[in-house]
Design a protein around this nucleic acid. Structure first.
Lengths: 135, 135
DNA sequence: ACGTACATGAGAACCATTATCAGTTACCTC
DNA sequence: GAGGTAACTGATAATGGTTCTCATGTACGT
């Protein structure tokens, strides 16, 4: 087909990949690869751990998932909208709100420019306890 | 003696602890524990890896160091001021500028409150290429 | 239905970090 | 200055998340 990999190949449709995608689609907050694996196992769906990692990595590469790094240094995944945004995460239940706010974007750019930095990106995470968990 | 030193023991003065502290004091950007260990070794100062980790952890606990988690999920350390701030990091040379700006603090609080989140903290990191590296 | 390139998975490898524990040493007391 | 002790050190093992290996399986174009 296309020589020199002009496009990326279409991933094959397997029950494992489907199971991981379905679980992520249904999960409201960030979740670790290990937990994806055990949740699938609990649901009677056997998927190898290596395969879980592979599927998640591919979904991240394809822009379907966002990642954050927990304090324990494990990577957490979540299905997110494609455009730039940040996260407001409940540290009790993991419920996550996407925050789209140009204010913080221009703040970051301003700070960087003030110090002569170019080619800027940034990462913002806000953590707290959501209304439901605070009760 | 530290005033209000309720329960804090004075760390013993050893050549290992001194070596780690000196290296961090002289280092301009964030650095990993592994790299601290190898830099000391290159300088002919033998310090066990476990001891490097211990010293760094104690310095973090004592508020002498800040940490961030790199994309590779390894923890990076840097000597920082004690009060709350964020970092502007050059992704080429690692040079870091501390950013003290109440604007982003109130932004984070406002976002959290708007969604009913309480007990909020946040993490902000801005990455770019500093003036020297952009040349 | 066939063939094959891509996908899978069990387990090994990897890597940063932490725990173990016997030997060392800074520092207080006399 | 000598001595005792609790803190410190470091070689090594253990841990835990993630990635690699490679033999086997399978989706999908033909």
């Amino acid at each position: 087909m296309s020589p020199a990999g002009a496009g990326r190949r279409t991933p094959r449709r397997t029950r494992q990949r489907q199971a991981v995608a379905d679980l992520l689609a249904a999960h409201p907050g960030f979740i670790s690869a290990q937990r994806v694996h055990s949740l699938l196992a609990e649901g009677g769906i056997e998927v190898g751990l290596a395969t879980v990692y592979r599927c998640l990595a591919q979904m991240v590469a394809g822009g379907e998932l966002d990642t954050i790094v927990a304090e324990s240094a494990e990577v957490l995944y979540r299905r997110c909208s494609a455009d730039h945004h940040h996260h407001l995460v409940c540290r009790r239940c993991g419920t996550t709100v996407e925050v789209h706010d140009p204010q913080v974007e221009s703040w970051a750019d301003g700070v960087a420019r003030a110090h002569g930095f170019a080619d800027v990106n940034h990462r913002v995470e806000v953590m707290g306890v959501c209304r439901a968990c605070a009760l």
